[in-house]
């Protein structure tokens, strides 16, 4: 187990390096530079380039990024908060916190609501309840996050005035409601659909027939024998979900005016604030990679057939 995790961490560092390289290449390919503006004189730009080392060859710049990152130094912002430590912007100004809070709430909701809904639908398959849940989940995965977010905004905040349209820094429960619902609804529905399908799949397996032949109660059959097996595909899905939730959070953050990581990333791209782009990409990628590792370990807990060392890619 320990050696497996070590191996995965080494692979993760490799992956991160490649992601850094891609990001570095792409952000330098964006036309223009952070200091370009109507007021800036060519001399001033040149000075700024020198100051931040942008005049050096690209390969040297990249090497500097890597070595600084290895020392835990994420550099300083060039434009948006000129001169401020990027690490400080991301972690101390609460941007990372906000996105994580939002993402984790949505993920937890997806699991805690999605899986039981899927179970209920499978357990009561063919009934009106199953039908209702199927309609809800099918529609749920067809509504884009931003449409749902705006609908909530229009109805709950603008028309009914129950909630504040600006969620701000997510300080109290009420401010969580709209962003978390809009972010998680797609995943709740998807997880519910997935659970239902894999549950029905499991129910048709031979071992369920064996358990039935033993005289096991239907409830136990579903909750014990079928559920644990059907969780396997659901867990597989949770890895990509993390990446998806980051996507969703971009939209949700901009709709509800939450000053989180997603919004900041979009701004940093538009402003060509290189160190911020790089740091955000690396932090979010690391998050996805860690999540994938967690999923693989969770896999092991649910399915004894998988030994971590030889899981098929």
């Amino acid at each position: 187990m320990a050696s497996y995790i070590l191996k995965r961490i080494l692979a993760a560092i490799g992956t991160l390096l490649i992601i850094m390289a891609i990001t570095f290449f792409l952000m330098n390919a964006i036309p223009g530079n952070p200091f370009l503006s109507e007021k800036a004189s060519p001399q001033a730009i040149e000075l700024a380039f020198k100051k931040y080392g942008l005049d050096k060859p690209l390969i040297v710049q990249f090497r500097n990024y890597v070595s600084n990152y290895l020392h835990g130094d994420l550099g300083v912002s060039l434009k948006m908060q000129e001169g401020t430590d990027v690490a400080k912007i991301l972690f101390q100004q609460g941007k990372f916190d906000l996105s994580i809070k939002l993402g984790i709430s949505a993920l937890v909701l997806a699991v805690l609501i999605g899986i039981p809904l899927g179970c209920i639908a499978a357990y009561r398959r063919g009934t009106w309840l199953d039908g209702l849940l199927r309609v809800m989940t099918t529609v749920g995965v067809a509504i884009p996050t931003f449409v749902l977010a705006t609908l909530l905004l229009a109805v709950l905040a603008v028309q009914l005035r129950w909630l504040d349209p600006k969620s701000g820094s997510l300080t109290d429960f009420r401010s969580f409601i709209m962003p978390v619902i809009s972010l998680s609804s797609y995943y709740i529905c998807y997880v519910a659909k997935l659970t239902r399908t894999s549950m029905l799949d499991a129910i048709n397996q031979d071992y369920i027939r064996t358990a039935r032949a033993k005289g096991v109660k239907t409830r136990v059959l579903v909750l014990k024998h079928a559920l644990r097996n059907s969780l396997i595909p659901v867990i597989t899905y949770l890895g990509p979900v993390t990446a998806g939730i980051i996507t969703g959070s971009f939209v949700v953050e901009s709709t509800f005016q939450i000053p989180g990581l997603g919004k900041y990333f979009v701004q940093s791209v538009l402003n060509r604030d290189y160190p911020v782009i790089m740091a955000t990409t690396v932090v979010l990628s690391a998050l996805v990679i860690v999540m994938n590792l967690v999923v693989d370990i969770a896999y092991r807990l649910v399915d004894p057939r998988i030994t971590l060392t030889n899981r098929e890619g």
Binding site: T15, T23, A29, A243, V269, L270, L287
Partner: peptide
């Protein structure tokens, strides 16, 4: 394929769009 899987695509997509 695994590498591409672990990239948060949206970040790269946003960068690509601008680039």
């Amino acid at each position: 394929v695994e590498l591409i899987y672990s990239i948060p695509e949206v970040l790269i997509v946003l960068l690509l769009q601008v680039v």
